[in-house]
């Protein structure tokens, strides 16, 4: 088992009272599996990903990744966990605007602790793998299309051989054709690299092609 979630609860305290974003969620995903999470807006999908990616701490419950409970990590170890074990792919790509595609990938390699002399070659290799031409690799994100930017962000997510890639609506900003290509890219990678992928999506076509689909509703898993 690569990832096991047990009785996960996340409650936000706001001015308007308590918001139960996640309520007693339990599930598990095997190594190399491609799982999708579907559900209405506000059902808790992003909150779940942020718990899995150690971006936030659960109110209660456990998240075990390779037998380590990441809910109990110190802030410093959380950061280390994010840099080595997790790869994020965001709906809005979230590349650093003043760094080239290559430098964006090199940044992740730096945080993952790759030796500085190896970073450039490894980044170029990763970008080639996701289908970015050498001249495109030197461009800043503003000079790349949405699909190309998302490819860069996938290369960045893969940089440190993560255990899990977490993707929050990775095709949400793309036309359906490009979205499909990005999805295929993720799918192939999960096979070839044997990386676990958990992707949030609205596209039921896409969800239907994944190994497993979870449906969230009001912070609870209603269909596994």
């Amino acid at each position: 088992m690569s990832l096991t979630v047990t009785n996960l609860t996340k409650t936000f305290t706001t001015h308007g009272g308590e918001v139960h974003a996640l309520h007693d969620v339990s599930f598990s995903v095997k190594t190399g599996e491609f799982a999708s999470i579907i559900g209405k807006s506000g059902s808790g999908k992003s909150t779940l990903l942020s718990m899995l990616g150690a971006l936030d701490i659960p109110t209660s419950g456990q998240i075990e990744v390779d037998d380590v409970d990441i809910a109990k990590l110190s802030a410093h170890n959380q950061t280390a966990y994010r840099s080595k074990k997790i790869g994020f792919v965001f709906q809005h790509y979230n590349l650093i605007p003043n760094l080239s595609a290559l430098e964006n990938v090199m940044l992740a390699l730096e945080f993952g602790g790759a030796p500085s002399k190896d970073r450039k070659d490894r980044a170029a290799e990763l970008l080639a793998e996701v289908g970015l031409e050498p001249d495109q690799q030197k461009r800043k994100p503003s000079r790349l299309s949405g699909g190309q930017q998302q490819r860069v962000s996938i290369a960045r997510a893969l940089a440190n051989h993560p255990a899990v890639i977490l993707a929050d609506e990775p095709t949400g900003n793309l036309d359906s054709e490009t979205g499909k290509k990005i999805f295929d890219l993720l799918h192939n990678l999960s096979r070839s690299e044997n990386t676990t992928i958990i992707a949030v999506t609205h596209d039921l076509d896409i969800a239907g092609k994944t190994d497993r689909t979870f449906k969230l509703q009001d912070g609870k898993i209603v269909k596994a």
Binding site: T79, A80, F88
Partner: peptide
């Protein structure tokens, strides 16, 4: 946002 991204991808 950029700061958040750097932190999310493992920047201390």
């Amino acid at each position: 946002r950029e700061i958040g991204v750097i932190k999310a991808i493992g920047g201390t």
